[in-house]
């Protein structure tokens, strides 16, 4: 059972990681917590679901569609809810509150558009099972694991090696300086938000596939977990988000397996309260200095 539970924990954890990656990107560049990330993730899942159900497209096409929609939604949020705040000198809490507003709006919109019931992908992807020794693993689980690790490496490489990646990192260091250096920071911020939201969209489809349920409130619970991972791994730290997600997933599953399942939902926040008191910069964060 131990190995099977470890696999369960890793799969759950990698979905958390995927969600946390989006948080961390925005945190790194804009230094804000995007409380609406979970809801963008949820919208992505619905877009993917509807593409598969009504247009009968391939699952990877659906993922691309979800990514594009979520990215556009992210850009819209940046224009409506975040950019106006940057122009004014407002409290650092303002973007947090503003994104909470976006989150509530999107969740309620989804409830009205899609209804409260959970819906499932019509594919039989989840039913494809494999037996590897003592472990039974589904194809979706493998895809999720592969994709989250893949995305993490691509993201890291892209940020450190490409021109745009370097521009993002410069903006993350200091917006004014980046401006002086001739970087169009507004464009970079746009790009980051789009990228983070797009990742959220893909994560939405993957999570919807693996748990076979897409419903409007999934954004809130997943978003809160992603937030916990963000703090756990260290704000604005990609490796932190990745490993933090896996740690949280495994911790939750093991709480169920060897402890009491009724305390499962307290694990995430119990962990972050602990981490905030002991090591506020997160497990993998540095106290000062560069992000990413």
């Amino acid at each position: 059972m131990f190995w099977q539970q470890l696999v369960n924990g890793l799969t759950l954890g990698s979905t958390y990681s995927l969600v946390a990656l989006g948080y961390t990107l925005i945190m790194g560049v804009l230094n804000i917590i995007n409380m609406a990330h979970g809801e963008i993730f949820m919208i992505g899942a619905f877009v993917g679901l509807y593409l598969v159900t009504y247009f009968e497209v391939n699952i990877f096409v659906a993922m691309a569609g979800a990514m594009v929609t979520s990215a556009l939604l992210g850009c819209l949020m940046e224009t409506v809810a975040l950019r106006p705040l940057r122009r004014k000198a407002v409290s650092h809490l303002a973007p947090l509150i503003s994104t909470i507003g976006v989150a509530i709006f999107l969740e309620s919109l989804a409830l009205n558009l899609f209804g409260p019931q959970s819906q499932a992908f019509p594919t039989e992807l989840a039913a494809v099972q494999m037996q590897l020794g003592p472990i039974r693993i589904s194809l979706v689980q493998i895809i999720i694991l592969g994709m989250s690790f893949g995305l993490m490496f691509v993201l890291r490489f892209w940020l450190s090696k490409t021109r745009v990646g370097k521009a993002i990192r410069t903006t993350a260091e200091n917006i004014e300086t980046a401006n002086l250096l001739g970087i169009n920071t507004n464009k970079i911020i746009f790009l980051t938000v789009a990228l983070a939201s797009g990742l959220g969209g893909i994560a939405g489809v993957l999570v919807g596939l693996s748990f076979n349920a897409v419903e409007p409130t999934m954004g809130l619970s997943m978003g809160l977990k992603g937030l916990a991972v963000l703090i756990l791994g260290g704000m604005g730290n990609i490796t932190g988000a990745m490993l933090g997600g896996l740690i949280l997933g495994i911790a939750e599953v093991f709480t169920v397996a060897y402890g009491a399942s009724s305390y499962r939902d307290a694990v995430a926040f119990g962990m972050i309260i602990l981490i905030l008191f002991i090591r506020p910069q997160g497990l993998f964060g540095k106290r000062q200095g560069g992000r990413f």
Binding site: M1, N8, S221, V253, V256, A260, S261, R264
Partner: peptide
């Protein structure tokens, strides 16, 4: 005796335990 919460989507941990 295993619990979950309304709107949960992942039951693999509980069910793996029960299966064993």
């Amino acid at each position: 005796t295993e619990t979950f919460a309304d709107k949960d989507t992942d039951y693999s941990a509980q069910l793996t335990k029960i299966a064993s």
